[in-house]
Each structure stands twice: as C-alpha cells, then as structure tokens.
C-alpha cells in the first residue's frame, strides 16, 4: 500500500479479502454506516446489549467461582462450585440460543424517526451471512412498523467481489448504492397481509 494512497483517504478500508469473517464484518459495518449517516437512522443497541449482558454474567460467575475457591479451598467450596458450574453452562446454552434464535445474524437494528413526531419509530433490521466457498454475501433488510403489523422484507445476494476491488479495498459507494436500492425496494413492497 503506497503512502500517497493513505494520505488521500484515511477512511479507506483495506482488508485481507480471503478472510470471510473480515469481509462480512466490513460489509456489515458499511451497511450500517449507510443507514445511519445517509438516512439519519438511530442505532438501537438493545439486541447487542442483551448479549453483552449475558456474556458478562457468564464471566462474572466464573470469576466468582475462582475467587470463592481461592478463599475456601476445595472440599469446603464444593457446593458453591457445583452451583457455579451448573449456572455457567446454563448461561452458555442461553448465549447460544440467544444468538441463534434472537439475533439470527442481525448485525444492526436502527430506528427511523418520524420527523413530525406523530408516528412511532420504524424499525429496520439488517442481517447477513456469507456462504462459504461461494463468496456470496446475503443481505436481508426488514422494515417493521412499531406494532409489528407491517413487516416488509427483502434479501439480495451478491458476490463479495462486487463490493471490494482486487486489493481488498472496500468500495463504499457500491455498498451505498445497493443499500439505497434495497431500501427503496422495501418501501415499494406491498404490505404483507
């Protein structure tokens, strides 16, 4: 990477294009960026925050077990350890359930504020996955009104090669185009009865 290049645009994101996770994370961030900066959506962190909360709880349980066992060496700490171990693995199960059934690959939940302030917020959920060995990036956008009656959904799949150049630099404008098109398509969709 030349020095001039980094001087011209500090925000350019260059990644290792053979790394699926890096590709997905970069694209996800870019999509979210478009929703927030271009359409003035407000990000709703509650989905992520709950996951962080469960994870923190699991780590705290383990830390507590370690501390308790340190101050009350083993045979004495048996009961507390049993409880902690059981609690820890239940929490781990809960995290797995949460990520598979609640998050389902949703990487961004954003709220579209009604400027007049009369109507409640509209929720946009963006989720994605990359199919391994095909390099296809599946992006789904869901628009929900506040009561959840009007749910519109659209999915596109495009090769990751569309969004990155040969060097692995993200083409932000392509992402922005795609998101714009998708958003309009979702808005045009008829209400699913």
């Amino acid at each position: 990477m030349g020095k001039e290049e980094s001087n011209t645009d500090d925000k350019q994101i260059k990644i290792n294009k053979w790394d699926y996770l890096a590709l997905k994370n970069t694209l996800d961030d870019a999509v979210k960026e478009v929703l927030i900066t271009k359409y003035n959506h407000v990000e709703d962190f509650s989905l992520i925050d709950y996951r962080l909360l469960i994870c923190t709880f699991a780590v705290l349980v383990a830390g507590f077990a370690l501390g308790w066992d340190f101050f009350n060496p083993f045979p004495k700490s048996r009961f507390v350890l049993t409880v902690c171990v059981a609690l820890y693995f239940i929490t781990m199960g809960a995290i797995t359930l949460y990520t598979t059934y609640m998050e389902k690959g949703i990487f961004a939940v954003t709220l579209e504020r009604d400027e007049s302030g009369f109507n409640p917020d509209v929720v946009w959920e963006a989720s994605s996955y990359i199919k391994k060995h095909t390099g296809m990036y599946y992006l789904t956008m869901v628009r929900k009104d506040a009561v959840g009656v009007d749910v519109r959904e659209r999915e596109i799949s495009k090769s990751v090669a569309n969004y990155f150049d040969d060097e692995g630099t993200l083409c932000q404008d392509v992402v922005e185009n795609e998101v714009t098109k998708m958003r309009e398509a979702v808005l045009k969709l008829k209400k699913i009865e």
Binding site: A58, G63, R78
Partner: peptide, 24 residues
C-alpha cells in the same frame, strides 16, 4: 471491542469451569 474482550474471558472461563466441574 467489549464483546471481543468478553469472548476472550469466556474462553478462559470455559476452560476454568470445565476444570472446576471435574473437581466437583
């Protein structure tokens, strides 16, 4: 970043809790 740190913590905690489980 916080999630990253927590993931690291959970890897260590899992090993620890498996060990404590074996102890019990």
């Amino acid at each position: 970043f916080l999630y990253q740190v927590l993931c690291f913590g959970m890897i260590i905690s899992s090993a620890l809790m498996v060990w404590k489980g074996l102890m019990v």
